[in-house]
Structure formats: C-alpha cells, structure tokens
Amino acid sequence: MSANSAEGPARVEVVLVKAGRTKIRYPADLLSDDGARITVRAPWAGDGTRDFGFVRFEPGDVFTEHYWRDRWYSVKEVRTAGGTLKGHYCDITRPAVLTGTELVVEDLDLDLWRSADGTDVRRLDEDEFAASGLPETDPRAAAAAVAALDELETRAREDRFDALLS
C-alpha cells in the first residue's frame, strides 16, 4: 500500500524507545506500508553533527528507514542532502508497532553499519548490549537480537543486503 495522496505523503511520528524511555521522537513521511514492512523518510533528527569516525550524520542528511512488524531490526539508508549514499545504519530492535500515526520501535542496543560500497561492515555497541542486562532479564529477546545482528551481518558481507529493501 502506498501512503501518498494528492496532498503528499502521510506523516507519522517515529518514537525510538530505549530501556523504557523515549530516546528520540521525530516526524517522518510514510512512504509505504505493506502490512509487514513500513518505510518512512525523514531528515537527520539529531542535534548537529554526529561523527562516528567511520561516518558522519549531519544536518541535511536524509534517512529512508525500513521497519518490520515481524523482524528484530530496522534498516536506515543514509544519504547526503545531494542524494549520495553514505551507507546503511541498522538498529537491532523489537518488531515495530504502528498505532494510528505513531511508529514505536524499541532499540536493543546492538547496531550494524554497512558503507555505501559494502566494504566496511561493522558490528556496533555489543558492550552496551551486554551491559543492558537484557540477556539476563529477557533471554528470548536477547537471543532474537543476536540472531538478527548475525543475519544482517551475513547479508551485508554476502551482498544480499539490498534484497531486504527491494
């Protein structure tokens, strides 16, 4: 289902929750919702520039974000204001929930980066995940999170990543 109308794309509010608290909330254009995958587009919602060392997110960057109701991750295509692909930032999350115009996603600390050319694939924040206590408090969710990270890394390294987004 396309989410566009004569007035333009529908709007949703993306709500990223971490450890029971809202980490960030921002408006996004709802591009599509096929019942399993929800795709939105939004400008970089962070304050100023965030330099990770291997990529910089900065004002003007555009994120096309793919969320699934039945998968434990989201994939964010990151482009410059001019349209150049920087890469894909993947959050390991519980499956997304869209209620009305609010898209709620619970971040489980693990992340994956894949550069535009696919040569730089890196797992991120495994120390934060271990420190979160999730493996002890919710072993089923922790196992699903690790499996999701493994799946994304395998897809990224075997050039099967783009199939997720088509």
Rank of each mutant, 00 (worst) to 15 (best):
L112P: 07
P9N: 12
V14L: 14
G87W: 08
Y73I: 03
V121N: 03
F54C: 02
L16W: 13
D125R: 00
T84E: 12
G87I: 04
R122T: 11
D51R: 00
R11L: 09
I92W: 13
T39G: 01
L112A: 05
G60T: 03
A145E: 13
R56S: 09
A36R: 04
M1N: 14
G20K: 07
A141Q: 07
W113H: 05
L108H: 10
A144F: 05
G20Q: 01
E106G: 09
R21W: 08
A145Q: 09
T99L: 15
D70N: 04
V62T: 06
V55P: 01
R37T: 09
G83K: 00
E151I: 00
S132P: 06
L16D: 10
R140H: 08
L165D: 01
E136V: 11
D33Q: 08
L165E: 15
T119A: 11
R21Q: 12
L112R: 06
W113N: 01
L110R: 06
V97M: 06
W72E: 06
K76N: 10
I38L: 02
F57V: 05
D33N: 09
R94H: 13
P27V: 12
V75W: 02
D91G: 11
E153H: 08
A116M: 13
A81E: 03
P59E: 10
D91C: 10
S74H: 06
T137C: 02
A96W: 02
T101R: 14
V78F: 00
W72Q: 03
D33A: 03
V17E: 05
D70G: 00
L31T: 01
T49C: 11
E102G: 07
A163L: 15
G118C: 15
K86V: 04
N4G: 15
L152N: 00
H88W: 12
D107T: 05
R69G: 02
L31W: 07
V12P: 04
A6W: 09
V105M: 11
A96R: 09
